[in-house]
Design a protein around this nucleic acid. Sequence first.
RNA 1: GCUGUUGUAGCUCAGGGGUAGAGCACUUCCUUGGUAAGGAAGAGGUCGAGAGUUCAAUUCUCUUCAACAGCUCCA
Length: 645
Amino acid sequence: MNVKITLPDGSVREYPKGVTGMQVAQSISEGLARVSLAIEVDGEIRDLARSIEKDSSIKILTWNDAGGKYSFWHSSAHLFAEALEELYPGTKFGIGPPIENGFYYDVDLGDRAFGEDDLAKVEAKMKELAKKESRFERRDVSKAEAIDYFTRKGDEYKLELINGLEDGKITFYQQGNFVDLCRGPHLPHTGFIKAVKLLNVAGAYWRGDEKNKMLTRVYGITFPKQKELDEYLFLLEEAKKRDHRKLGKELELFAFSEKVGMGLPLWLPKGTLLRERLEQFMRKAQIKAGYDPVVTPHIGSKQLYVTSGHYEKYGKDSFQPIHTPDEGEEFLLKPMNCPHHCEIYKTKPRSYRDLPIRLAEFGTVYRYEQSGELHGLTRVRGFTQDDAHIFCRPDQVKEEFVKVIDLVMHVFNSLGFDNYTAQVSLRDPNNKAKYIGEDSLWDLAEKQIQEAADERGLKTVAVQGEAAFYGPKLDFMVRDALGRSWQLGTIQVDYNLPQRFELEYVGSDNQKHRPVMIHRAPFGSLERFVAVLIEHCGGNFPLWLSPDQIAVLPISERFNDYGQKVIDMLKELDIRGFLDDRDEKIQRKIRDAEVKKVPYMLIVGEREAAENKVSVRRHGKGDLGSLLLADFVEQFRKEAATPLA
RNA sequence: GCUGUUGUAGCUCAGGGGUAGAGCACUUCCUUGGUAAGGAAGAGGUCGAGAGUUCAAUUCUCUUCAACAGCUCCA
């Protein structure tokens, strides 16, 4: 009996029934077999050692496949556990999954403290065990057998997991002396794991529930080659250097104050400059795209949010109501701009001819985020959204969506984020009751979103069950210069608020109709966006955004007058910068300007002053020679032009 | 919010039961120097806040606040 195996290139080969993934890999090439980690059979990732019993489509997975890495790190978690068990017998194990970068394992070490030196010890043990090239052996076990094993071992966490499993679908994996409850898949043997680094230790509640016992979670990462580990560690270092909290302080962009309150950023002059450049850029782009700017207050009557439904759903996550002295009225710091915008929509009757109406506002909102969640500028309690709400007819959703996608892509491209994807978040088709709005509208909107994204060639992943209860959405993820992924902009369709606020327009049939609302924020929040931008460019902002574009550096005090003349002229032309007239040597002034990441340094001395020139130095590049001031300005202005809206 | 770690000068950090120290930054003076740190002097701190133990607390204990890491959450 033979089975037909379809390879990723579409070719079909025949093998005897029961052929293993490894044998298939070997038949393709020895080279492939050497680097094969796992196999995908009809979409399911499996061990290479498992036999294939029926006709299937397969893909051999290597380190270059996400599934290959997944298996690699999953096996590494087992290797970690094996090492831990040898070093500290009696350790109990929770779960140990692979994650985006590496793996973790939750363990219960009893009363033993686990510190830095333990990490090094376990690392060494892991490497030692890996060299044994122990095979990962898969075994089907009955539920009774599984329970029996872990009862004898005394591991209540595994027992709890087994209790939640169905008899007949339980598998054990064993490598060396270590046996774990696991559905796999795993590497052929531990020898693939050549480079090991245990990164940190943290507490984590068993099953993520704070009522449960806290286990010790150890994070680690492994690679097939030492060089890859070194590169990864270098990237971690680089990320530390680019941390926006560190750069924000060093470059004097923003600060926090205990007195002001946690999670409430203070924008310093340079940070404000940067932020205002971004706002101005967005404002222009939005006006061009047909948005009408509006302004609404920072607080709103509680009734406004009761109407919108936010009070019921998020009231406890808001700052508590403000009470007026006499009237007994209650106001909330606004957590959202949309209710205000709905009220603007309602200020007069709307005709189908008026739609779409696009109301845009850099609206500052306040949300009572959990204290443990606050993080630099990426998670704060007061932030400004580049918010807008588009009120349109159901048949306009797609067209409006396409326009918003264009705007978002324009923003990303202009800011140097050229690697982004989007997630289309759809309803859970099995649980439609969870959502508000008519079926037909949802179907229409979901179709329109997908079509809009496709039309613009956007890479999308559709995820069912991820929609908001009030409508489907499109979330943008950008990858930064270090390959990290961040969620930024979002576009959401909303059937809920138009209904709750009883928004209407008069159609061509002279009947009242309900508009659809689209919420959108390309940056998301200015705070978060600036944080991501800082980390993306490592504090070296594009020239048009840089708070200080130029530093004028006189060679000595004798040329301060000429320097002043130069900076005055630049300022006249709206070029941002400063004159460094300190009594310091030029080397020192250059160093300081370099450290502050000022894009251009203009060095002026006797030669320059005599001929109306400046000696140009570019940050990170060095001396570019001298130019007539007028020529430099012309060249500079070209380079510093704001991306076209 | 929960668990753990940390909190000393503007910044980065050392120290430690007898009220504190370094480097950088800052101020003044000397120096007038051509592409990444010139020299000297000086000033600067309720040792996060509150309470307790002690003859004595910045140091030990408790409480509290904040930051960091992780968990949970995110309109």
